[in-house]
Write a protein that binds this DNA or RNA. Structure first.
Lengths: 253, 253
DNA sequence: TAAGATTTGTTCGTATGTATC
DNA sequence: GGATACATACGAACAAATCTT
């Protein structure tokens, strides 16, 4: 019912890749869960009738995709692992290394998604979660005096958005928004997307975040949506003063 | 200026993983482009002072991430490769294997993004592109009589959306919409998300796609946005009659 | 602390496969 | 076909990490 599908046109696959696929299939067939143990090296050598080197290359392939982890020693071996959000972000980041992504592209997405996220979280967050968000919003309670301070405020603001995203029950929405926050953080760090400091935009941005937490606390979905929409407009204005092209680089693990 | 960052808390990394990182760094430092050649095995053995097996495991790691391709024979070796959209989808799909994604989650995203995509494409497509879309929309010009036919119509409709997404200049928007179309296609194939056939919904869906192509051709952005929004409502209604949980499985390469 | 057991990690030598000229 | 330049694969030996006693 699966594994057989999608086998179109993939001519020459090396033995390690084939073994990696067989291991994947082995896992899916048995419906193994994260933490479940795979056969050890010696058993796989026998199971797939290949050498130790080939088995190890196959395991590295699965490890690189975040599907397994391997530990040495007694009780060690390879174990099914669920792909972490961090690794998924990193792998997807590689895709955009050679794609031309502009700030306008990212803000087109953010303007569509962040208000939706805000509305969907209204009245759904715990007091602890709301307090954490408020603390992030209050983290910088004065205008930036230096470029370095401005940079830190940008990063803190993006951390606010990333954290907010993580609270969403919709894991796809959470991932995409979090991914964008991380991209923007990288841009902030690697390019100088944080000067000149702009007191007025800082004030409006901070005010928006605090108002948003209030609306979320009060369970006012439409209000939360509206506030976030305004906030996106401000953030875009802030970023749009800077260069348009995303730094082309591999995102490290 | 990079490679040094993000090195937090990564205690025990195996030698192949470290070598893979060094190769990545080597590529970034030289700003190599897709097609550019990496050192061959013997050179890497000398360059990183590790054995052949270790080099090969490192290369498999990079290959699994879609960053390089390897060819045998004279003139062969490893070459920088740009990660394909297909591979990026596959790698990201693994992340959602253990995440609970519902149809409601996907449609929350689609309702926010697909109208935005439609609006941004109005007046931007070539006659060839518009003709291709119209052909996809007309592909099934009669109501489905059987479940199999209904399934094929669903898949064709999703292909319409995937193709539309690929025309977007915004590569992030294109990727996310295309990713969702592929997830829905998988759900259509692996679960029976296509019966019972519903003539009325089929008629409205098809009409929407044809109207959309017309609006795109006429360069009417707002009209295109409105039509797609209606179309999403219809599609959601169509899907919502089915089970809510996404099939949990590895997406094959 | 120390020794032993278990399992992965790494190296080396050799042979084979594959594509180009 | 033969020579060449690569990657691919195997097997045996040893190193390192980790758990148990």
């Amino acid at each position: 019912m699966d594994g057989g599908i999608e086998q179109r046109g993939k001519g020459k696959r090396s033995r390690p890749v084939r073994v990696a696929d067989e291991i994947k299939q082995w896992v899916v067939e048995r419906d193994l869960k994260p933490g479940d143990k795979l056969p050890n090296e010696a058993e796989m050598i026998a199971l797939f009738a290949v050498s130790k080197g080939t088995v190890r290359e196959a395991l590295r392939i699965l490890e690189a995709q975040g599907l397994i982890v391997t530990r040495t020693g007694p009780g060690g071996g390879s174990f099914v692992d669920k792909v972490s959000a961090e690794r998924a972000r990193s792998l997807l980041g590689n895709y955009f290394y050679f794609q031309e992504l502009s700030l306008a592209d990212i803000y087109q997405m953010r303007k569509a998604l962040e208000p939706e996220l805000s509305a969907s979280l209204a009245g759904k967050l715990s007091a602890d979660q709301l307090d954490e968000l408020e603390a992030l919003a209050r983290h910088h309670d004065h205008p930036a005096a230096t470029s370095e301070e401005e940079k830190q405020q940008h990063i803190a603001s993006l951390a606010f958005h990333a954290r907010l995203a993580e609270f969403a029950e919709n894991r796809l929405l959470a991932f995409v928004i979090s991914f964008m926050a991380h991209i923007l953080t990288d841009m902030t760090v690697y390019r100088q997307l944080y000067d000149p400091p702009n007191v007025e935009l800082w004030r409006r941005g901070r005010q928006h975040q605090l108002e948003l937490v209030g609306a979320l606390r009060a369970g006012q979905a439409q209000s939360a949506r509206r506030i976030m929409a305004s906030h996106m407009a401000v953030a875009e204005e802030l970023m749009a003063t800077q260069e348009a092209k995303l730094a082309r680089r591999f995102i490290s693990d």
